[in-house]
Design a protein around this nucleic acid. Structure first.
Lengths: 203, 203, 203, 203
DNA sequence: CATGAATGAGGTTTCATTCAT
DNA sequence: GATGAATGAAACCTCATTCAT
């Protein structure tokens, strides 16, 4: 019998995945608190109780959904970004791929926009909850490289990360939650231009 | 009997305000859904039922909290910003004051960080919910002025707004929700520098 | 200063009456439990608290509404009925006036239909609550007279009362609550005919 | 697994029934509005939430209680009545069985007495609420037959129905709600006598 | 493993009643 | 007397979670 990392059979892998997808879908649309486990179960075509065979409780479902969604995408993005030659090109590619990811997966974009912000109480309850830590860590690495290569002036890397991540987050949130009222492509280029220009080495 | 705008007596104004403050406090700390009306009432030193004399329901409490919080602060910020001579200075001042506001009112910063983004369902239910519309509209005006005055190159104003608002939002969220792990002052200046440099007219 | 039975000034009499009328109106339409004191007060153009100056509580408002409504009408009916010469005519007239009363005051008919039936618990709580006792007592008297005069055969008076009262109650309830789907005039005559015929002395 | 009409397992049928019985019991004793779902649940030996697995809400519980109580009994009555030869006998038997039913099931009698009449608002909210429609429809049929067979003179059938149903309703209400202060057996016979005599063909 | 019926704690909201003005 | 803002108890209903099948 084929068994996986977590000790699950292939069929169970699929079931687990279905539950996570259903959770993301529903969290994105209705928000965490307005999503009932019964909704997720129905969407995933399993019984309510089955959800609890794969996840301890509703909170964990949220946490795992984030974790695994980020991990999966980060890997794909890394592979692509690392093909670029220069630091500045890698940063640009990263920016582009990030936007692309969310444009092509509106559900994920919505999910992130709505669920990323949890209350301090939630962070206290789950200190390990830090969904895009690895994501930001990778971005930090890219920025540092670009600075070291001299293509970006020696600015505060944290500041740059905040600008990039914050802007993407905000743009995508507005775009996905409010109803895509503007062209993402145009604004994306303009933003990249401002940032690139603003971080260019001064003479 | 002294009566106010909404037709409330002076004492009632105070009570209404106390409820709003309590709501912001609690929403910021525990999140909207983990806040019970009883919490808000207790914090505001009124009976549970009293909350419903001033607000139709819990949702409206959230909406009004945002609305009035933004409105009140925007006015103060405008007054200050308009004292500046040049467009670029106004933009800078706006940025600074915005950060300052939230630095000095961590509760409000947290509240915004946690509750600003609602689910599509919420937006559908309350189409009028657009708490920082006037805020962004003012920012748009500032950007346009700066461009017209030639101190900022003719970039896409929307892009600039997204960068500014998104960055501030993200920085403050990280800073307030995660526990103020970095110096806001330093990062603020670096960010302003990047943005200013990135929007400077090219030769 | 003009003072009344209950020690009330003329203006207060009017206010008390307005509250009772409003109560009947609202009880009839929405039922006792779905009527809020605030509804009654608003309808009567008084403050909520004022209701409690005239009635101890909501229950008493219901009880008094019944009592006084019945008393007032019974008096008018008696005056009219007593003009009739024979027992059987008096019975007929009574029947007619009873129907007339409710036909001309649909609110009262509805009120009675909906609120007459209270739970055993209610009757236990208010043993004195017996809204149409005097009404039935008067009817009993009429029946007895008719029997004594020989125009009605010596039947069980109680049975006759039940038939008359029950039928009227049911007819009016159906008629008023369900939406007056049939002609009250025709059915009234048919009913009176059956009853008169059924109670006629046998040869 | 044994499954029933509504798609319920045998055990669930029993549970559903227990809830209905408990509801009737409690509605009869305390009235609909003074009955808490918790009362019903406790009486039925289930958890509060379980009630909502079988009925959408409290209103539906009332409606279904009526519907099914009437349906069940009507069937039994029909079976018995249809054994009679003549129309007039069927009418008599119907009357008797109707009275019997309620005499032997005081809870049901009380329930009906207290809850049959709802407010116009209730009828508007649930237009399909017409608990004894089939009951009256059957009675109409019996009356028509009796008229056609010539044993009852050609009177207004509706009038006769009103008399019969109204009288029974009133008698049973008085008898059950007020505390059974008179002999139902005697009065029943006297009433039947009056009605039969009143509807007899005239020469 | 999977199911889904059952549980029961908990929160929003209503509204009769009170009482300071 | 009259007002109506304030109170707070109480109840419907939801839904995360469990566990017998």
């Amino acid at each position: 019998m084929q068994r996986n990392l977590r000790g699950l059979k292939t069929k169970q892998i699929a079931k687990r995945r279905a539950i996570l997808e259903a959770a993301i879908e529903s969290f994105a649309q209705k928000g965490f608190h307005n999503t009932r486990i019964a909704d997720v179960a129905q969407q995933a075509q399993v019984a309510d109780g089955t959800v609890y065979l794969y996840f301890q409780n509703k909170d964990e479902l949220l946490i795992k959904a984030f974790e695994e969604m980020f991990d999966a995408n980060l890997q794909r993005i890394r592979d692509e970004v690392d093909k670029q030659e220069t630091g500045i090109d890698r940063l640009n590619r990263f920016f582009e791929l990030h936007v692309e990811l969310f444009t092509e997966n509106p559900r994920i974009a919505q999910f992130m926009a709505v669920e990323l912000r949890q209350s301090p109480e939630f962070y206290n309850k789950y200190p390990e909850y830090s969904p895009f830590k690895s994501y930001m860590s990778y971005m930090r690495q890219l920025c540092d490289q670009a600075v070291n290569e001299g293509e970006v002036r020696p600015i505060n890397t944290e500041a740059l990360i905040m600008i990039i991540f914050g802007t993407i987050d905000f743009v995508l949130t507005e775009w996905s939650v409010k109803g895509r009222v503007f062209s993402l492509g145009i604004i994306k280029n303009d933003i990249m231009d401002i940032i690139r220009f603003g971080t260019r080495p001064r003479d």
